[in-house]
Write a protein that binds this DNA or RNA. Sequence first.
DNA 1: GTTTTCTTTTGACAATTGTCAAAAAAGGAA
DNA 2: TTCCTTTTTTGACAATTGTCAAAAGAAAAC
Lengths: 187, 187
Amino acid sequence: MNALHHCISQYYPISLPAWEALSKALTRVEVPKSSFLVKEGTVCNKLYFLEQGCLRGYYNLDGKEVTYWFGFEHNFITSFYSFISRKPGIENIQVLEDSTLWGISAEVLHQLFDQHHDLERLVRIINEQYYIRLEERLMAMQFKTARERYEQLLESSPHILQRIPLGQIASYLGISQETLSRIRSQV
Amino acid sequence: MNALHHCISQYYPISLPAWEALSKALTRVEVPKSSFLVKEGTVCNKLYFLEQGCLRGYYNLDGKEVTYWFGFEHNFITSFYSFISRKPGIENIQVLEDSTLWGISAEVLHQLFDQHHDLERLVRIINEQYYIRLEERLMAMQFKTARERYEQLLESSPHILQRIPLGQIASYLGISQETLSRIRSQV
DNA sequence: GTTTTCTTTTGACAATTGTCAAAAAAGGAA
DNA sequence: TTCCTTTTTTGACAATTGTCAAAAGAAAAC
């Protein structure tokens, strides 16, 4: 739980009462490798903080698994579309390494928002930071070659390459596994 | 201003005092075609609501203008990275048609957040909706062909094609103008 | 240690998309 | 209208990336 508190304070330092209310509302979740935190076609009702481990979000398109994010230690995790819209999503969240998370339901979170303005501010700020990251990823996808995207990933997240199979990384970069393999051998 | 109120209420109905405070804080901005609302290298200090007109966000990469969003009536407009981080951005916001906007500075908005919790909630919710849109766009960019992205754009925003030069649309879709021209001639 | 399974690499070829250059078309200004 | 500028289309060719199939390598199970 300390990791969460530390992570939060880097975004926005909430008041003690807000932190106490939040920490009471959190549930510890442990999930084994290869299991699923969220399955497509269901409503994802929870927001998670990943304390330890590694996950990925993917969906099925034309019979292929399409990975569009990875989550590592100290990331916030949810099936965003589903969590926000309260509708079933197409996303699967799969556990890539045995993981420990802290979860809170949408209902409880919204109750806390009513009681603690600063908690809602925190979430607003976190959302904004995640938006900026997404924006950067979109730009890379829109205007950089496969090789450039790979090199950018190497720089920003070298740890991904040690922990994730190549096929999933290729999918995340929007290229085929074969192309990524060839790019790697030419660097 | 009515358009803004109506737009807001579709996201989250704020209280009357919050609306009054917000509407007092807004400045009307009129900008002529071809002018710039934001220039790269500067801090974008304002969040805008576009009442009438049309804008685009782009940046320069290797001597080329790279368009990554268009704004139309009833969209919220800002150079997001710069507005959030308070740092100079690389983005230019250019006016494509004579436009009318309502603007508010980051400072004033944050003051209003302190005074009106529901205003901050509104912005949180709007951010979340814009996040979802961005997510959809990233997915399209990552896993669809140029033709599919074009057809998707045709469906979701046919008005873009009437109002925006082809070269800018091609850039937005992440393809060359020649390719888009060829795709169009084959549909 | 051996087998089985999963992951990565390689080859051959096809499809997609980009680049450069020029022509055609459309839109505005005088 | 006529001229000028901007936008769009077309052609030829090159570069990038994808697909399919098979081989090689690594990891996990027995």
